[in-house]
Design a protein around this nucleic acid. Structure first.
Lengths: 188, 188, 188, 188
DNA sequence: AATGAATGAGACTTCATTCAT
DNA sequence: GATGAATGAAGTCTCATTCAT
C-alpha cells in the first residue's frame, strides 16, 4: 500500500520521525523538518496531505502488524504456550518497529486519533495475556511483560545511555523476552 | 516551601495539570486553563511567570522527594535489603505524586529542562538497583521494577480502564511492589 | 506646585526618569520601576494617575522654565545682545534640567502630547534667534546654537563617554555657550 | 547584497520605516504596518524573521556606508583637508540615508543592539575629527559639525516645518556643510 | 516534483490600569 | 500610604495549510 513516490517521501518520514521521537510531535514544526531536508514546507504537502498523515502513513505498518498479531492470537487456544508465543512475536514487532514504536511510547498523549488507536490495541493484547478475574499481581505482571519489550528498545537507543551498554538490539530482544516469559510463568 | 498566594494559585496548578496529563503539555493552551477556572489568561501570569513555571512549581515536590530517596539510598549498604526498601519507598512517592508523576510519564519528551531532569533521576535510581557489570536480564528486571510502579498508577486512573478494575490505589501499590520485589530477587 | 507627598513620590520620578532616559519611555515598564523601588506597581498609582503623569509632573518645571524664557525674550528688543543672552539663559535651563532634558532629547518621538509640546517650544526659540527671511546658513547656525546646549549635556553623562572626558558640567556649559555665541555672530 | 524577494519586501521596509520614524519603533505595531500594506501580519514574518530584522535589513546599507567612510578616513593623513572631506562625504551619506538616518536620530535609545552600533560609529567619526587632548570648545565644534548634517535633513522634512522653508535637500546639504566646515576651521 | 508568497488561527506574554482591603 | 489580585487590550511571533506558477 506504500506508494512509490520516489524516495523524498521516505526521507520525509525518516527525518520527521526522528524529530518527533526526540522532541515530541507538537514541538516539532514542519518548518524544521523541511529545513533539515533542504526543501520547502510546501514540498512536504506535495507528499502528505497533513502533518498527521506523515505520522499515520509511517505508523501504519506497525499498527497493522499488531492487528495481525491480535487476529492470530484470537484464533489460538488460550494456553500458556500461546501467551508465550504472543510475547515472542510482539517482541519482534517492537524490535522491527523502530521509529514508529518509539514515537508511540514517547508521545502517549498524542492528539486523540492515533494515540487512542494505539492504546486500544495495547488493551486487547493485555486481554489476551490475562483473564479478567485474575489476581491483580498477575495483571501487573502481564502489563510489564508487554511494556518490557518497548522499554528494552528504548534502553538500546543511543541517547538514553544505559550503563554497561550499548547493547546489540538482538541481544536485548532476547533478554527482554526471557524476562517477560518469566513474568508470565504461573505462580503457585 | 510553597508560598501561600491564596488558593487561586493552587487551583491553577490542579486544573493545568489535569489538562496537561490528559491532552499533553503542548496541546493545552493557557486560554483553556483560564477559561476552565473562570479567570483571564493574565491572571495566570500574575501567579506564574511562564507556562513552564506552572509545571515546575507543581512538580518540584515530587522531584525533591526522589532526590531525597536517592540521597538516602546512597548512604545505605548496597544490599538486597536496601534495594527492596528503595522500591518500597519509591512506590510510595509515585503513589503520592499523583498528578506530577502522571505528567512526567505522559510527557517524557517534554521540552528539555524538566524532562531531562526527570530522566536523570531515573538513571540514578537504576544505578542503585543494579551493578554496571550485571547480566542484561538483571538490568531489564530492574528497569521494570522501577517502571512498574508508574504503570500501576496509570492503571488506576479512570481513563485507562483496566479490565476487572478499577482498583483501590493502595491495593495496586502493594501488588506492584510485590511484583517488583520478585523481579529484584536474585536468580540462580 | 509640586505637592509634598512625602518623598516616595520624588523617588519614583527619579528612578522612572533614569530608566526612561536610558531605555526609552516605551521600553520601560512600570513593573520595572516598581521593582527597582521595592514597591508594588499599585503604589505608583497612589502617587500618579497614569504613566504619562509621571513624565508630565517631572518635566513640568523644565517646560515652564522654557516658557518663561520665551516670554522674557519676546519682550526684549530683537538685538544680537538679546539673542546672546537667550542662549546663555537657555544653557542654564538645560544644565539644570538634567533628567528632564535628557528625556526629551532621547525620546523625541515620544507619544504626541509631550513630544509635540516640546518641539513647539523649540520652534519658538528658533524663531527668536533668526529672522524668517535670513540666509539658510544663518538658520542652521541658529539651530546648532540651540541643539548644542543639549548635546553638551549628553556628552557629560557617564554612558556616552567622550574621549578626554569626563568633564565638569559647568566647564562644558561654558564651552558650549562660547561655541554657540560664535555661531550667532553675524557673518559678512 | 539585498536579495530580490519581489517587491513586497521593499514595501514593508518603506512603510515600516515611515511609521518608525514618525511614531517611534515601539509605538508602531506590526499590525499597523500590515494593515497599511493590505497584508496580514504573518506576511511580514514571511519576509523578516523579526520586527528588529526589518530595521536591521533596512539600515544595513546606511551603516555600511559609514563604515566605509571610517575606513577611508583612517587611511588618510590627519589633516584639516581630510577632516573637511570627511564632513562632505558624511553629508552625502546622511542626505542619501533618508529613512534610515531619520530612524536613528529619532530613536536613539532604541533597544540596545542597533542603537549601540550607531553610537559606536558616531564616536569613531568624532575621534577622526578631533584629537583626544584638544580644547573642549574644539570638541564641541566637532560634534556639532557632525550632528549638524542630521539636523539639517530633519529640518527639510515636511513635518518639522521650518520657517521660510521648505528647502531643497541639496540646498540644505550645501549650507550645512558650509557651516560645518566653518566649525572645523582652526581658531587662533 | 517543488517553490514562493501568503493566510487565519491562535499561542505565549506583557502592559497599564483598577479596586477592595 | 500601599498591597494583592485581577483584567482587557494589545503585542510579537509561530504554525499548519493553501495555491498559483
Amino acid at each position: 500500500m506504500t506508494e512509490h513516490h520516489g524516495d523524498t517521501r521516505t526521507r520525509i518520514q525518516q527525518v520527521a520521525f526522528d524529530l518527533f521521537a526526540t522532541q515530541g510531535y507538537e514541538k516539532t514544526s514542519l518548518r524544521e523538518v523541511a529545513e533539515r531536508l533542504g526543501v520547502t514546507k510546501a514540498a512536504l504537502y506535495y507528499h502528505f496531505k497533513t502533518k498527521e498523515e506523515i505520522v499515520q502513513s509511517t505508523v501504519e505498518d506497525y499498527l497493522r502488524g499488531i492487528d495481525e498479531l491480535i487476529a492470530w492470537a484470537e484464533e489460538q487456544p488460550r494456553t500458556l504456550e500461546t501467551r508465550q508465543e504472543l510475547i515472542r512475536r510482539y517482541a519482534h514487532l517492537v524490535a522491527a518497529g523502530g521509529r514508529s514504536m518509539r514515537f508511540f511510547h514517547q508521545n502517549p498523549a498524542h492528539g486523540a486519533k492515533l494515540g487512542e488507536e494505539f492504546r486500544a490495541r495495547m488493551h486487547r493484547l493485555f486481554g489476551l495475556l490475562v483473564d479478567e478475574d485474575a489476581e491483580l499481581t498477575e495483571k501487573i505482571r502481564a502489563v510489564l511483560a508487554l511494556f518490557g519489550q518497548a522499554v528494552s528498545v528504548m534502553m538500546t537507543s543511543e541517547e538514553s545511555k544505559m550503563p554497561g551498554g550499548p547493547y546489540e538490539p538482538d541481544e536485548v530482544r532476547k533478554a527482554s523476552v526471557e524476562v517477560a516469559l518469566d513474568l508470565l510463568e504461573p505462580r503457585p
